[in-house]
Amino acid sequence: MRRVVLCIVAIIVSALSLVPRVVRGQQMAGGAQNQPGARLSLDELKRQMFHVSAGRRLKPASWPNGAKVAVALSFDVDNATTSLRSGDLGSEPLSRGEYGAVDGLPRILRMLARQNVPASFYIPAVSALLHPQMIKDIQASGKHEIGIHGWIHEDLPVLNNAAEEQRMLTQAIDTITKMIGHKPVGYRAPSWHFSQFTMKQIKDAGFLYDSSLMGSDDAYEINMDGQPTGVVELPIERIVDDAPYFGASNGSLPSPELVEQIFQSEFDVAYDEGGLYVLTMHPHITGHRSRVAGLEKLVVHMKSKPGVWFATEDAIARYVKDQGRATASR
């Protein structure tokens, strides 16, 4: 009898261990476990909050040539990399991404040439390797910047692996360096998502600036664990991004006219405040006909005001860093 019971207990125990780990949300459902922060000390919360945070504000007294505002047009050339990364190989998502290389980017480059303004392009290495002509086209005018945007648009917090993250970052830097002929100075995390390891890795890689955080409208020096890193942040925002509005099937406001209105009033206030304006777009999203038209109208509106400095993020980061140094030594 005892053996029978023991045997049965063993069966139950092993059956239970076969149950896949309950998904996190379920495991934590109910009570304070669901809100771990409610039980943490303030010191603990500060450690979490200030692992990566806004340090010294880098707002220059004036922009080059007395300009009132600095404008960075930035394009994340993701194309199909997010689909390839996730193994989402449907013809619809792959071809929708491919459009970025085929029509989106060329149309954007023609518009930028017509308006004679520079831009920054953040390109996952795989995206560049799949359509190498893009790099040549971007470099042709000599005005634009190319920055790092991961190896294959990997989601770093989901990866959650310092060694893998480092391997892909190094691989991406090596690939892009070889393709563009110099080491890129700017970093933008795929989906703007830092993992807990990202800040240290991009600091160690010697990047001049990052453009993935939202702590301010002005440029700032990133602090890591309360210490200045020397890395400049040129902050981004979903409000001034095309994807949340136009996203493939779940865009919240697919009217280019209303979206450009939002982008424009963001600019108008930045202009009044003498600030920095970073707009993020994607060739496979904004490169479409109805949207490039809206973007060009916006550029024309900005150009109609006196004292607008259109620049690459590289140029802006160098400028605010130099100005910041001057202020600090004063």
Binding site: N34, Q35, P36, G37, A38, Q48, M49, H51, V52, S53, A54, P157, A189, W192, H193, F194, S195, Q196, T198, M199, S212, L213, M214, G215, S216, P235
Partner: peptide, 15 residues
């Protein structure tokens, strides 16, 4: 409150 290890980008959105 919710996350046991909140990430830098969403934190900066609140900051």
């Amino acid at each position: 409150a919710r996350e046991s290890n909140p990430l830098p980008t969403p934190l900066s959105e609140g900051e």
